[in-house]
Write a protein that binds this DNA or RNA. Structure first.
Lengths: 349, 349
DNA sequence: ATGAAAGCGCTAACAA
DNA sequence: TTGTTAGCGCTTTCAT
C-alpha cells in the first residue's frame, strides 16, 4: 500500500501554509502574514476572520522560511561545559524562562571541556543562525570561537572578564561573596581558612582564587598556599583535593570552595576522615544550587541569582544586537552569603 | 556611520551561500551541494577542489533552506518536566551524545508540570519541524500532545506504558529493580519496608507503587499503606512525607523511594529526627543520578542506564520514522541495584 | 560528471 | 486596507 504518487517536484507530503489559510479565508497570504504578526494595517473584521480560519485549520507557521529569508532564527545558543553540574541546568531553566516569554528558542550545546566539541558547537550555532550566544565554557581557547565573530553573532561570555568587539561579559562578583563569607567566618573565630579551587590554568579558577586571597587580606587573615588545593569543580576531584589538604600539619578550621559540587566533595572527604562539620570544621560552598540545601549538613554557600544572571546575559546580548561592531558591556552579577548549617564557631584551640 | 544602502530587496546583509562557493570554484551550486552531501557522482578532483574553496571561504551551510524544502529539520525534541532534577539533564547529556554524532540537534522544552507549558512546548516542536519527540512528562493529559500526531511526528513517551499510532514508549523496568532491592533488604533482616512515592494521580507514580507492592509480595513481606506516603519527586516534598511517616507507631526499618531526590529528602528528614542511617534505618533511592554518591551516606539506589535509555528512545523513534502510521514499539530499560552505604542490617528489635 | 532551474513558506516592497 | 511578487539557500529532477 505504498502510495508512490509524485505529482511534479514536491517530494514529501505538503503541509499547511499561509496560502492554505489565505485561500480558505478568501484573502491573500500577505494578509495572513500580517494578521499573524499583528501588524496594525489589517481591518479588524478581516483579522478576526483570518484568526478563526487559523484556529479551524490548526495552522502552525513555519519559521524556517523566515530564518531563510532573514538569516536570523529567533534562537539563542547556550554553550555550557557540563550539564551534570546542576548549576548549568538551573541557569538554563532561568534563561529559558526569559526567552520563551519572548518566543525564542534555545540551542544547547555541551563541550565537556573538549576543544573539539566547542568548535563543533560553535559551528552548530552558526548553522542554525542563532541570534546570539551565551558561552559559559570560559576555559576555552579563543580560536574556536572566532567564527562567531566572523558571522557577526553577538556573544556573551560568563566570567571571562574580558570584552571586545561583538562580545560582552557577565562576571560573577566573587569578590563580594568571598569577602562576606570571610568576614562571617572570622566573626565565628576562624583564623585559618583553606580553599579548594577549580582546575588549574583556567582564567575563571584564577579569578576565584585571587578573590579569596583578597578577601583574606581585607579581613587581616593570613594566606598560605599550604591551605590551597586545586580541584576540578566536581565532587570526586574535590574529595581527593580535600583529603590531600587534610595532611597538612596544622589544619585550617574552615574551608571555602569554588562551587557547591566542590563543597560536596569536601564534605564527603571530611566525613570519611571522621571530621565533624561544622563543629570541627566549617565548609562554605559557592553557587547556591538547589541541592545545596539537601545535603547533610545543609550547605552554607555563596549564592548567585540565576535569574539576575540570565537577565544580564540577555541585556548584554540586546545591546550587542543593536551594533555588533562595538565592544560588548561588562556586567556584574552579585553573590550573596546564604548561611545554613555547614558553618559554625571555630573549634577551641 | 550607519550605512543605509539598500540595493533591491534583500534587507539584511547577505551571507555566503553555495553560489558563492560555486562561483569561486568555477562550478555550479548543484555540484557544491553534491560535494557537501558526499554524493558519489562527483569527480574526485572536482570534489577536492570544491572542498578546498569551502575551507578557504570558511563556508557554513544554512540548514534552514533544507528544512524549508523538506519540512524536516534534523532536530529532535525533548520535553522534560523539570530540569532541576539532575536525572533529566543527565539524560539530556546522553541523548545529545547519540544525536550529535548523527549531526542532529536537540530542542529542549520544560513543562514544569504545567499543562499550558506542555501545549506551548508541543507547538514549538511542530514549528521547528522536529523529526521526533521524546516526551518525559508523562503526567500530562493526552489532549495537549495530539497536535504531534496530527503533524505525523514520531513520538516516544517514557514510562507511560501505552503505545499507539505514531507513539512508542520506553518503560523503566521498576519491577526488576524493586524486586532486587526488596530481596536485598530482606536478606539484611528488614521486614517492615516503607515507601515514599511520587505525586498522586500520575500513571508513573502508580506504576512505581505497584511495582513496590508486587516486590514485597514476591518476597513474602507484608504491605501496609500505613508505611506509604505520596510526595512529589522532590526533596522538600519527600522530607515532609517522611516526617509524617515517622509518626507511625511501629516504624519501618527501611524506606524505598521513587527517585533519588526523594531519597535525599528522606535522608534529611531522618537526620533531623536524629535517626541514624543505615544503623537505625536503611534508605534506597531510584535513578542513580551522579550526586547520589555525593550525599552522606552515599545512597544505595536502583540505577537506570541513561545511555541505554537514550538508545532505546532513538530506536523507537527510528522505527516510527519508517512508518508513522503504525503503533510504536514498547521497549524496556533495565534497572540495577547499586549498593552503597545508606543500607545496612536491620536494627535489632 | 555537471549544470539549469523550480520550489519549499514567508514577508516586505510596491502597487492598487 | 489589501494583493502581487520576488527572493532567502538548498536539493533534486531533468537535460546535457
Amino acid at each position: 500500500m505504498n502510495s508512490k504518487k509524485k505529482k511534479k517536484s514536491t517530494p514529501e507530503q505538503r503541509t499547511q501554509n499561509m496560502r492554505t489559510v489565505a485561500l480558505r479565508a478568501g484573502v491573500s497570504s500577505a494578509t495572513v502574514s500580517r494578521v499573524i504578526n499583528g501588524l496594525p494595517s489589517v481591518k479588524q473584521e478581516t483579522a478576526e476572520h483570518v484568526r478563526k480560519i487559523i484556529e479551524e485549520l490548526r495552522f502552525i507557521p513555519n519559521p524556517s522560511a523566515t530564518t531563510l529569508k532573514y538569516g536570523r532564527s529567533n534562537t539563542y545558543g547556550l554553550i555550557v561545559p557540563d550539564l551534570t553540574n546542576p548549576f548549568f541546568p538551573e541557569f538554563l531553566l532561568h534563561f529559558e524562562q526569559v526567552l520563551v516569554e519572548n518566543d525564542h528558542e534555545i540551542l544547547v550545546a555541551t563541550t565537556q571541556s573538549s576543544e573539539e566539541k566547542l568548535t563543533n558547537s560553535v559551528r552548530r550555532m552558526i548553522m542554525r543562525r542563532v541570534d546570539g550566544v551565551v558561552l559559559m565554557a570560559s576555559e576555552m581557547d579563543t580560536r574556536s570561537i572566532e567564527p562567531i565573530f566572523d558571522h557577526q553573532i553577538p556573544m556573551v561570555t560568563v566570567d571571562r572578564r574580558r570584552v571586545h568587539k561583538g562580545c560582552g561579559d557577565v562576571a560573577i562578583a566573587f569578590e563580594n561573596g568571598f569577602r562576606e563569607a570571610v568576614v562571617y567566618l572570622k566573626e565565628l573565630g576562624h583564623r585559618r581558612i583553606g580553599f579548594v579551587g577549580g582546575t588549574e590554568g583556567l582564567t575563571t579558577s584564577e579569578v576565584r582564587l585571587q578573590a579569596f586571597q583578597q578577601a583574606l587580606q581585607n579581613a587581616g587573615l593570613m594566606f598560605t598556599s599550604r591551605f590551597v588545593r586545586a580541584a576540578d569543580y566536581r565532587v570526586d576531584g574535590a574529595d581527593a583535593a580535600m583529603s590531600s589538604l587534610l595532611n597538612e600539619p596544622d589544619r585550617p578550621t574552615a574551608i571555602m570552595t569554588v562551587n557547591d559540587l566542590t563543597a560536596f566533595g569536601v564534605l564527603r572527604a571530611l566525613h570519611r576522615a571522621g571530621i565533624k562539620v561544622p563543629s570541627e570544621m566549617s565548609v562554605v560552598g559557592f553557587d547556591g544550587i538547589l541541592l545545596s540545601s539537601a545535603v547533610q549538613p545543609p550547605l552554607t554557600t555563596i549564592a548567585i541569582s540565576l535569574k539576575d544572571m540570565a537577565n544580564r546575559c540577555l541585556e548584554a546580548l540586546g545591546k550587542l544586537k543593536a551594533d555588533v561592531s562595538k565592544r560588548g558591556p561588562l556586567l556584574l552579577v552579585n553573590s550573596k552569603l546564604l548561611i545554613r548549617e555547614s558553618t559554625g564557631p571555630a573549634p577551641p584551640k
